[in-house]
Each structure stands twice: as structure tokens, then as C-alpha cells.
Amino acid sequence: MIRLATCSLCGCFGCHMSFLDMDEKLFDLVEKVEFDRSPFTDIKSVGKCDIGLIEGGLCNEENVEVVKAFRENCGILVAVGACAINGGIPSMRNHFPLEACLAEAYLDGIGIDHPQIPSDPELPRLLDKVMPVHEAVKIDYFLPGCPPPAEAFEVLLEALLKGEEPQLPTNLIHYD
């Protein structure tokens, strides 16, 4: 069995939803792969895997830790979706200082009771800027899209499961 891990970092889980849009193809897939850490299994730490799919960019210290753990444990690492590839929509906060973002969300925004910046030690600290995952680790393949279409996941996984280089046809390349 091929072991597959997935995670959603600074993303919206839309890529995972698109993955599930493979619908009946998932039956064929689960014959060949076993899921390790993934929102689908709720396993919290990544074990030795053949393939890792990363959704979302890097916005906090935990994201960096997770992507490094994936790199250490996954033979092939794939950046999935706009956020993992270029920061995506969350990186629009890069226009503003982090302090201003926190103030808008937790101090000055409309309808806020008990304004305070969350400081629980369990909360990972935010990075100054949202970054694509290839800024922290080496990425082997990229699957663009917001989200990538289900067919793109099929093309990618079919090739990787056969041990071939994935070749995404032009009609499956989308940035939106």
C-alpha cells in the first residue's frame, strides 16, 4: 500500500473538498493508498509516507513545523492549491503590518466584546508575512488552482502511483 498524508495549513480546506470531488474514483484510490495524517483520518502527526499533499500557505509557526515534518517523512511532497503555491488569498494580509491585522480583528473591528489580542501559550505565533510552502521546504510537484479541479488530483495521483512524472494537461492548469 502507498501511504498518503495530507494537511491544510493556512488554507480553507477547499482543496481537500476538491480532492473528495473525485467521487467514485475514491473507491479505486483507497484500494491502492492508505491515509496517514490527514483531516480525513484525524491522525495528528505524520508518519513515514510515500506522498504528502500540502494545502495552504505558511502563516504561523505551527505551519512551518508541520511542513518540515511532512518533508522529513514524505518521499514526494506536493504543494496543492494557490495558497500553498503563492500564499493565495491569506497573503493579501502581507500589505499590512501584523499589528494592524490583529488590531482590526481583535481590538478595533465592529462588534467586538472584550477586545484583546489572543495570547494563550497554546496558540501558535503568527508569522510576519504569509509565505508559500516552497519558502520553507523543497517541494517536488505543484498542483495549481483555487482549488485544483478533482481531475487534476486524479492526474497527479495516477502518475505518482505508477511512479511516473505527473504531466498536467493545459486545460487542467488554473490559478482560480
Binding site: I85, M131, P144, I173, H174, Y175, D176
Partner: peptide, 23 residues
């Protein structure tokens, strides 16, 4: 969807920006 930069990048098979974004 109607952007010529995006269209040119699709045709060039661009899957990733490779470089660090400047933001």
C-alpha cells in the same frame, strides 16, 4: 479567466512561481 498574463502562463505550463514572491 480573461487575463492575458494568466493565459500566457497556462500556455507556458507554469505550475508554480518558483521565486520568492515580493508582495
Amino acid at each position: 479567466g480573461s487575463c492575458r498574463l494568466q493565459h500566457a502562463a497556462y500556455n507556458a505550463g507554469m505550475l508554480d512561481p518558483h521565486y520568492r514572491p515580493f508582495y
